[in-house]
Amino acid sequence: MTNDEEPAVRLRAVRKVYGTGQAAVNALDGVSVDFPKGSFTAVMGPSGSGKSTLLQCAAGLERPTDGDVLLGGVRLGDLSETALTLLRRDHVGFVFQSFNLLPFLDAELNVALPLLLAGRRPSRKVTAGVLAAVGLADRARHRPGEMSGGQQQRVAVARALVTGPQVLFADEPTGNLDSGAGRAVLGLLRSMVDERRQTIVMVTHDPLAASFAGRVVFLRDGRLAGELAAPTPRVVAERMTGLETAS
């Protein structure tokens, strides 16, 4: 959509206010941050810091009260609801804590669902390709109930990738997984960045999960509270402890 120097996602002085008057809550308070193409960024902060709101605004799920969000150089505030829906459908992938798979569909059809909903005929080659990419080539005919939690989340990742999104947004993607399955999913996301130059923005509370990212962006009270490159679980945990205990 634009030249390679343009960040995949750019937020400029973004504010998001919920409610009015004395009940108003500033979920985001003037946040400016870039997410470069081909990067893996974790977003962290104490409860109520605004991290999920940041993800929702960056992905076009919420419109900010003030400020600008650009995705692939496109200013989301300039788009109608229909145009915004189409942009999300074609250029954004989502992975959530809940796998959100349809239990009566097999893995291949769950992966193909975004294409079917867009009125596109899914190619078996494409769906098989993304299932193979997440290590589930032999599970195409299995329904969610026949797979482990980690395998179901891999199907959800494949579904998010099937449209070839510019950005994949993940909100606590390992929150419902045991430690082994969680590490496997995080390793998968890391490989998508390293091998496919996929851009990933992940909200997490887990220092270990954050260590799979190349950068951690910290929020506190709706504002940026620093960032960390090449994170390790210990350093991330120390930074989080500092944010949570700060007055």
Rank of each mutant, 00 (worst) to 15 (best):
R12E: 15
R12M: 12
V14F: 01
K16F: 10
A27F: 08
D29M: 08
G30M: 06
V33M: 04
D34C: 03
F35I: 01
P36H: 07
P36F: 01
K37V: 14
K37E: 13
G45I: 03
P46Q: 14
G48D: 12
S49H: 06
T53W: 03
L55N: 12
L55F: 10
C57H: 09
C57V: 13
A58F: 01
A59W: 05
R63T: 15
D68F: 13
D68M: 14
D68E: 15
L87I: 03
R88P: 00
R89V: 10
D90T: 09
G93F: 05
G93I: 00
Q97G: 01
F99V: 10
L101S: 04
A112Y: 02
P114S: 08
L116I: 15
R120G: 08
R121D: 15
R121S: 14
S123W: 07
V126C: 10
T127L: 10
G129N: 14
V130I: 11
L131Y: 05
A132Y: 10
A133F: 13
R139F: 05
G145E: 10
G149N: 06
G149A: 08
G150F: 01
G150M: 08
G150Y: 02
Q151F: 02
Q153I: 01
V155W: 02
A156V: 03
V157P: 02
A158I: 03
L161C: 08
L161K: 10
G164R: 07
V167F: 00
D171A: 06
D171C: 05
P173V: 09
T174V: 06
G175T: 03
G175S: 06
L177T: 04
S179R: 13
G182T: 09
G182H: 02
V185R: 06
G187T: 04
L188T: 02
L188W: 00
V193A: 07
E195G: 11
Q198Y: 01
D206F: 00
L208S: 05
S211A: 15
A213P: 01
G214K: 08
R215G: 06
V216L: 00
V217H: 02
L219I: 04
D221M: 00
R223Q: 15
L224N: 09
L224K: 10
L228M: 13
A229E: 15
P231R: 00
P233D: 13
E238P: 00
G242D: 12
L243I: 09
L243H: 12
E244V: 12
E244Y: 07
S247N: 15
